[in-house]
Design a protein around this nucleic acid. Structure first.
Lengths: 247, 247
DNA sequence: CGTGTGAGTTGATATGCATCAACCAGGGTC
DNA sequence: GACCCTGGTTGATGCATATCAACTCACACG
């Protein structure tokens, strides 16, 4: 497709173990010492690859595993009976997908790769087992899940209280901090998702998203060429998104 | 205040133990056999009472406990930096409040009693301990938290995809099923919250909520006298809320 | 090299709901 | 009983954003 599967993937699979994964300080291993990490290693089903547009799992199919994003990006969405999609989250490397179905028998949402994406599959049964034996793991799972709740609450705030500009500023900043967390540039990055996905996620029309992007550009806040985004005036974006916590 | 603290409270405190609580089939004990329930009993701080408007906990204060609603009702909300409130959920008897802060050191939201409310306080430290020793408890906690995530996703769908009428229909139906779960009438109940709270929760103006209520009334869908609500045409409400799952 | 297809942008118009404003009813207080 | 205060309702107007439509660009494909 394109040559955008860069360095980080290569480095993270170098040893094919959590110990040596470059994301270990973001992902599940965060909670574990190196002894315990071996236990996790035994359970993880590494290096599952999905091409852009492929589904990692599908709403109302049996729930077996959570997935940690290793490289690439994933969107999750729920489909309503009336047939339309609401994107509920974007997941970047180091983030865990599928928590909304924990201890449920079917998936509550659909996960789709936004670009070529590799994930680590973690069977729930064994994840629960692991959480049971390793208190640190249980604690971390609780932490991740509560964070997921807070994220979703923040989305609700965005959707019900903020203007189109504020929502988009908030999203850009959220992405920015998440890139930074991975030691990548917080001000210059490639959007993993299409305008369409942004619009859907933020409860806007595509046209509105497009207009806001150009308005931001004209105001000198950002520099955008397609999915290539440069945040020029972080301060201004932050004050614009004031009152909206970023993930 | 008023004489609206009825039967269910009395019955649920009769023995002051989870074993004999009338909500045991909805609340945490659901996950436990009677041996394990004693362990839970030892930990729970029962019969904390809050009057209408009193805060159960406050955003960014230290997080110590979760709370199970025993009678009454609670709303949770997050306050943005810009100062406005977004209600993130209503909690009825048998439901657990505070999961959005699990394994975090401060509360991510504020909880306020909507009417005179009694709760069981469950210190997190011991809840985690309990979850660690009792696998059923851990499983149940995961379940509750993932449910909370799904609820919040559903709220996002409502906020970004549905009209005012659809949102209100969905809320009424959600309340309906929750009353039914407690063996109360699913078609005739008292709203625990003010119009204001409904509006805030659903991302609408109070005036809009009011208008929709009267419109529903004129169409013969409901019968409303203040907070006293009768759902006359459940079917119609359901098709109106089509595509919005109820909790 | 033309042709098709999907993503993105831009403009013109429409609309659902917020906002502003006035009013009403119930209940607590003096 | 007069007062106020809060919660709720109803009407008139405005605005942010959806919708509809047209166009551009890039890229894939035969």
């Amino acid at each position: 497709m394109n040559q955008s599967i860069p360095v980080n993937q290569v480095s993270s699979i170098s040893k094919s173990s959590c110990q040596h994964c470059s994301l270990s300080n973001l992902c599940l291993p965060l909670a574990l010492d190196s002894d315990d990490m071996n236990r996790l290693d035994e359970v993880v089903n590494r290096d599952r690859i999905f091409n852009r547009g492929e589904q990692v799992f599908t709403q109302s199919t049996p729930f077996r595993s959570c997935y940690a994003v290793k490289s690439g990006a994933i969107k999750t969405s729920v489909i309503t009976e009336s047939g339309d999609e609401q994107i509920t989250g974007f997941f970047m490397p180091g983030e865990l997908v599928g928590l909304d179905s924990m201890s449920d028998d079917t998936h509550a949402s659909t996960a789709k790769a936004l670009e070529r994406t590799s994930v680590c599959e973690i069977p729930v049964e064994q994840l629960e087992q692991l959480a049971h034996t390793l208190p640190g793991m249980q604690h971390h799972m609780f932490h991740l899940m509560s964070q997921e709740i807070r994220n979703s609450h923040q989305l609700s705030v965005l959707l019900s209280k903020n203007t189109a500009e504020e929502r988009i500023a908030a999203l850009l900043l959220s992405l920015s901090t998440r890139f930074q967390r991975r030691k990548l540039s917080p001000t210059h990055f490639n959007l993993p998702m299409a305008r369409n996905d942004i619009a859907n996620f933020l409860g806007l029309a595509v046209e509105t998203v497009s207009r806001v992007f150009t308005r931001f550009q004209n105001q000198g806040l950002i520099r955008a060429r397609g999915r290539d985004i440069e945040l020029v005036d972080l301060e201004a974006l932050q004050t614009m998104a004031q009152g909206t916590a970023q993930t």
